[in-house]
């Protein structure tokens, strides 16, 4: 009895030791390159910063910067709320689309390699320096408009929500529903461009499902529909959370995000670095809470192998 108990304990200890050895690089990195700068940023947010010839001069102001962000600045709180709302909507559609697209690209058809390469393009094109230049380039936008008016193409996409709406109104479909659909249609290019990473994650997941599962179910006479819900969906469910987390974060920390722009403007043209640090902290807290709720809610439905 005693030996058995002892054995179990050492196993657990062994697990602990190896676990910590494996995550050791992250522990060091977190303390040095994340925790330390974050603490520094907290200090900034409680101070008023002034750039001087021989460095930065800090004056302690307490909660002043936080008061400024929530009570004085008229744009910050409303924009934070509207960005959060837009995020929830977008996450839903991006998830649905990327799941669908990954299943599509996993099928066998001619030109599959080409299609995959194209679907991944947004990751490369609408990121980093290229995206930044596009957003500051007014003229390319003007040029697109000329192209469209010349060809009578309405909107940047092949479908325009408004035209669809006009058509559907004649079918006497409830207006509320129509607005929802039209809004979704207008978001199509946006959604597609935000889904590149998620499609790849799902695709890699689809390819790591053992083919033997499908073979077995085929022998049992399952339909494609049953295969999808009984095999594909549960096997992909861990990656669904990954993608939810990624989409939320990608939306929140993207430099094109309105709150981020407001924060940057505050740093350079407004109240300065102290105030923008306070805004970043409020923003950051909001993201953390939302992420916690969403992950908590979705992780109940996740299926893990051998658990």
């Amino acid at each position: 009895m005693r030996t058995k108990r002892r054995f179990r304990l050492t196993l657990r200890q062994r697990d602990s030791v190896y676990g910590y050895i494996f995550i050791f690089p992250f522990i060091i990195g977190f303390i040095l390159f994340i925790l330390a700068p974050v603490v520094q940023s907290v200090i900034y947010s409680l101070n008023s910063l002034a750039m001087e010839a021989n460095g930065v001069k800090m004056t302690f102001v307490g909660w002043e910067n936080y008061k400024y962000a929530t009570l004085v600045n008229a744009d910050f709180v409303p924009q934070l709320l509207s960005t959060t709302g837009a995020m929830l909507n977008k996450v839903f559609w991006v998830l649905v689309f990327s799941f669908f697209a990954a299943n599509l690209l996993n099928q066998n058809f001619r030109g599959r390699l080409l299609a995959r390469t194209i679907f991944f393009l947004p990751v490369v094109v609408s990121a980093g320096i290229v995206l930044k230049l596009d957003q500051t380039d007014y003229l390319t936008g003007v040029a697109y408009d000329t192209i469209q008016t010349a060809q009578n193409v309405p909107g940047t996409s092949f479908l325009s929500g408004q035209i669809l709406m006009m058509f559907l109104m004649q079918l006497r479909i409830p207006l509320k529903f129509l607005e929802f659909v039209a809004g979704a249609v207008d978001m199509i290019p946006d959604i597609i461009n935000a889904s590149g990473v998620q499609i790849l994650i799902f695709l890699a997941g689809l390819q790591s499902i053992p083919g033997s599962l499908y073979e077995a179910s085929e022998v049992e006479g399952a339909t494609a529909w049953e295969n999808f819900w009984m095999i594909t969906f549960p096997m992909l469910s861990p990656l669904i959370i990954t993608n939810v987390v990624y989409t939320i974060i990608d939306f929140f920390i993207s430099p094109s995000n309105e709150v981020m722009q407001l924060i940057r403007d505050t740093t350079f043209f407004g109240k300065g670095f102290g105030a923008s640090s306070a805004m970043l902290w409020i923003y950051f807290a909001t993201i953390a809470v939302i992420l916690g709720i969403v992950v908590g809610a979705t992780s109940r439905f996740v299926f893990y192998h051998d658990r």
């Binding site: 602990s16 910590y20 995550i23 390159f33 923003y283 950051f284 992420l291």
Partner: peptide, 29 residues
């Protein structure tokens, strides 16, 4: 694959490290 004390805590910090906007730690770094 390993169960150890504080695993949940450290993993929460991994997620946290993702959520921190680069602007926040840019200047101190």
């Amino acid at each position: 694959r390993f169960n150890f004390i504080g695993k949940g805590f450290w993993f929460a910090l991994v997620i946290l490290s993702l959520v921190i906007p680069p602007e926040m730690i840019g200047t101190p770094l």
